[in-house]
């Protein structure tokens, strides 16, 4: 694209940004507006977890999160479809190897903590899964071509585990007469923990496998 066009486009978009800013400012300042905050806050005690963001993600709007797990899976499937992985890096020297050998367990431990803490403070399955994925990335950078992942069959099962557990819990609740993804209040905490655990493992495996970048 030529420089003149780029400049013209920039000016037009700057104008757009100003208009949007003005609109947003108007919407935010004129009236504090009805928000879902109070409604959400009132229902958090019944959601099975005490962190409001987690209760939105895994209870009030759990369906969004289910589809979001499917998006992560779709990206991995798309990457697998593109062909075999590129070869990894050469094995690392002793210094790097020993550093990797204690960072990876720490990351896994931190992932587990993130998962548990998500119930009452910021954290949760995606953050924990990201840490697991990071452990895989470090392993691969350290020379393990498979990034610490199991064989193909196992990888496939683990990658679908999060979405599968989520969907099956939803359907089981529907079959039990509660409705799709409608957790009974007493069970909510444990069902959410179950879903989050499966999701953490799936996201960790998916991210590491996506980093490896090709069919296992």
């Amino acid at each position: 694209m030529s420089r003149d066009w780029s400049l013209l486009l920039g000016m037009l978009l700057a104008l757009l940004a100003c208009v949007l800013l003005w609109v947003l400012h108007g919407a935010l300042m004129d009236q504090p507006g009805p928000r879902l905050a109070d409604l959400a806050a009132a229902n958090v005690p019944y959601s099975g977890v005490s962190n409001p963001v987690t209760s939105v993600l895994l209870n009030f709007r759990a369906y969004d999160t289910l589809l979001e797990l499917a998006v992560v899976l779709a990206a991995l499937l798309g990457i697998w479809a593109l062909g075999p992985a590129v070869p990894g890096f050469q094995p690392s020297g002793p210094v790097l190897a020993s550093m990797v050998s204690w960072i990876v367990p720490l990351l896994i431990l931190a992932g587990g903590y993130m998962l548990w803490v998500g119930g009452h403070a910021p954290g949760g399955a995606f953050q924990a899964g990201a840490l697991l994925g990071a452990a895989g990335v470090i392993l691969r950078l350290g020379g393990d071509p498979r990034a610490g992942l199991p064989d193909e069959t196992m990888q496939r099962w683990l990658a679908v585990a999060g979405t599968a557990v989520f969907t099956l819990v939803g359907l089981a609740l529907a079959a039990a007469g509660e409705g799709f993804l409608t957790y009974p209040t007493d069970w909510a905490k444990w069902l959410i923990l179950l879903i989050e655990t499966a999701a953490t493992i799936a996201i960790g495996v998916t991210l590491a496998a996506a980093y490896v970048g090709g069919r296992p």
Binding site: L39, N59, F60, R61, Y63, F180, L181, T182
Partner: peptide, 13 residues
């Protein structure tokens, strides 16, 4: 219509 999660709108989906 179906209220997923049993929360109903606007909180649920």
């Amino acid at each position: 219509t179906a209220d997923l999660g049993g929360w109903g709108v606007p909180l649920g989906i």
